[in-house]
Design a protein around this nucleic acid. Structure first.
Lengths: 194, 194
DNA sequence: GCGAGACGTTGATTTTTATCAACGTTTTTT
DNA sequence: AAAAAACGTTGATAAAAATCAACGTCTCGC
């Protein structure tokens, strides 16, 4: 279970991982299995754990007054599921996170993560890189949201995360793009004709 | 010039700043004045400097094939202007950053920033906090973009960053919201009637 | 002081997208 | 195996927002 985490850290950081570091990692990250549709986090809860996804898929979303879900993030293998705001400030979350597939995850608390980062230099790099990647991706997503049409946004998603389109049903993709499932269906119909 | 930076770091970090740290800060951050409309970064350039804004206002935006500007960020005092993707990976930027007002800024390169962070513990916290805040704000902006109408997005902006509305003209605000200036004008007209 | 450009408004029209409703297919549950 | 739920599609219609065009005001540089 921990192997894929270790491999992933190695791939993201130049600093090697000592074998005592690996032992420490294994002690700190708690393996946990989630069933499809199981919540990892519900609105109003404080996000105590961060989850590294070893296998499976999750979604992070808000629910508005009308009861409609708005998907903020789709998460698959090697991604990190949490609500950093809630976790760091220890305030109730605005988001739901649940599993779209049966999922194997590795959990840590904020504190154990801090301790780990202090002790293992490679993790510092890893953390920085994740934060960096997130920053870049957000900026792009915001730019797409304010400057592209529904159709263009869909084609951008096809280019950027083709695996999402394979893995999640269309109404989930539509929500992620901020459009209705009907509009997405029409966009795809158009695209298929060409 | 450096005072506002020092004060800001203090306000964001629990660790105190030693006086030798302050000397180091002053040596590392290069003060520079920019005129209104002056570019800080142009598309295609590598972003060599990050700029801490002491006084003034900037905007970060893309320009599409039609020549239209799409504003990704508005930046004022105590904010940090750069393109992290370009700066860290040393690749050409997709963004323009220019000054909307005459601006006093403090510049650092990536390397001098890394060195500083290594030497001054308070900066580490500061960096983490900025990155955190950015993360939270992005998530909210994405959520607003995919779930709210133009009108609701405008009212959210009024709540979240009222200073932007004072400081930037309407067509800039409209671009930031991803709507046309005409639509924003009508939204404001509606709101005024109530 | 005057002309150019920036800014904002308003109206008419078109385009884009959402909404509502119905229906077929597939998957899951019982 | 049947029923229910989830998923996707299509059509008609409505709402939201963009586009196009014209115009008024203000500011700034010369």
């Amino acid at each position: 279970m921990h192997e894929s985490l270790i491999q992933y850290i190695r791939s993201q950081s130049a600093t090697p991982l000592a074998s005592k570091d690996i032992d420490l990692l294994k002690k700190t990250f708690i393996p946990k299995k989630f069933r499809k549709r199981q919540y990892f986090l519900q609105e109003g809860e404080v996000c105590v754990y961060g989850a590294f996804i070893v296998k499976g898929a999750m979604r992070k979303y808000t629910v508005d007054e009308k009861g409609e879900e708005h998907i903020v993030e789709l998460l698959i293998e090697n991604w990190w599921a949490n609500d950093r705001e809630s976790q760091i400030k220890e305030v109730p979350s605005r988001y739901f996170i649940d599993c779209w597939e049966d999922t194997d995850a590795l959990l840590t608390t904020k504190q154990s993560m801090y301790d780990l980062i202090d002790r293992i230099p490679a993790l510092k790099e890893w953390r920085a890189k994740i934060s960096e990647n997130y920053h870049i991706a957000s900026q792009k997503r915001i730019n797409d949201a304010i400057s592209l049409s529904a159709e263009q946004r869909y084609h951008e998603l096809e280019k950027t995360y083709p695996e999402f389109i394979q893995r999640f049903p269309q109404h989930i993709i539509a929500s992620y793009l901020g459009i209705t499932k009907e509009t997405l269906s029409r966009i795809r119909h158009q695209a298929a004709k060409k």
